[in-house]
């Protein structure tokens, strides 16, 4: 080995070499991860563009001529134009409600650590663990008696309630990291609770709001179990049940199902790309103490 050469240079050469190998390893790992994650979507794409009688390998693009039939079937028979609109309404309302109600609830829970409040926190968090089927029939009966089945408001309220625990958890964790000084200053200036909450607390929640918006809207947009029961008429059905209706006990239409799934992915993907940079910052919410 090079004994006369300055030790300094050996080290740096070695560092450079290992870092080059490190870079190669890092990008190989990333490439494998990306390919793994994208493969199912690729298969859905080839399926969606093939006619139902085309039974060539899923890896192959539709060689014998692609078709848009599946998309038009999904759109027309599945009433996707309604499903997209219904999904959008329920998602926007539920997400807005989750943010507002969740942030409001989190504020006292983060700032006042009394026994009662710790109990309330636990109670709300505990709701994360309720199996949906345990509440389905009583809930459905209640909504039927109130005449609220097949209304946007009932599904929105139910889904908001299901999403609240996680939102409250994330908001509470994030608020605890905020310095008290601003709120104290506001109080000295004579600001009331509402003013302090709206002017001081809410604006500083921006990153965590982005996180809650992305997680909540994705969950609501894709929610299947409750949605398929509460909104089951074609006019008001949301996206996941509409797409799933192509998997039937008689005659699956996998091409149309894949097409419906891809159409349904688009809006949420756009929303995600739009909010992504805030999201990464806000995901820290639960991560700081």
């Amino acid at each position: 080995m090079a004994t006369t050469i300055a030790p300094q240079r050996t080290t740096s050469a070695r560092v450079r070499r290992t870092s080059r190998i490190g870079q190669l390893g890092r990008w190989t790992f990333i490439a494998i991860a990306v390919i793994t994650q994208v493969t199912p979507f690729y298969l859905a794409l080839t399926t969606a563009f093939k006619p139902i009688t085309d039974t060539t390998s899923l890896w192959l693009p539709p060689l014998s001529g692609g078709t848009l039939d599946n998309f038009s079937t999904a759109w027309n028979s599945g009433h996707l134009e309604w499903a997209l609109e219904n999904g959008l309404i329920v998602t926007v309302v539920s997400t807005a409600l989750t943010c507002i109600v969740g942030a409001m609830a989190a504020y006292p829970l983060a700032r006042r650590s009394t026994k009662l409040n710790r109990f309330v926190s636990l109670l709300i968090l505990g709701m994360l663990m309720v199996p949906p089927l345990s509440i389905l029939v009583p809930l459905y009966t209640m909504l039927a008696q109130l005449g609220l089945l097949n209304t946007y408001i009932s599904l929105s309220l139910v889904l908001t309630t299901i999403q609240l625990p996680l939102a409250v958890f994330l908001f509470t964790q994030f608020m605890r990291t905020l310095p008290l000084s601003l709120e104290e200053a506001a109080a000295i200036d004579g600001a009331g609770l509402t003013t302090t909450f709206l002017r001081i607390v809410l604006p500083s929640l921006k990153p965590v709001i982005a996180t809650v918006v992305i997680l909540t809207s994705t969950n609501v947009w894709n929610e299947f179990a409750m949605s398929s029961y509460i909104l089951n008429q074609p006019e008001v059905r949301t996206l996941a049940p509409a797409a799933a209706s192509f998997f039937g006990s008689q005659g699956n239409n996998i091409g149309a199902a894949a097409a419906a799934a891809l159409i349904g992915l688009l809006p949420i993907l756009i929303a995600y790309l739009f909010l992504q940079k805030y999201f990464v910052k806000g995901a820290l919410a639960g991560a700081e103490k």
Binding site: M104, A105, V120, T160, T161
Partner: peptide, 9 residues
């Protein structure tokens, strides 16, 4: 402030 959340839950 957590009354609405508790009510919904």
């Amino acid at each position: 402030m957590y009354v609405p959340a508790i009510a919904m839950v």
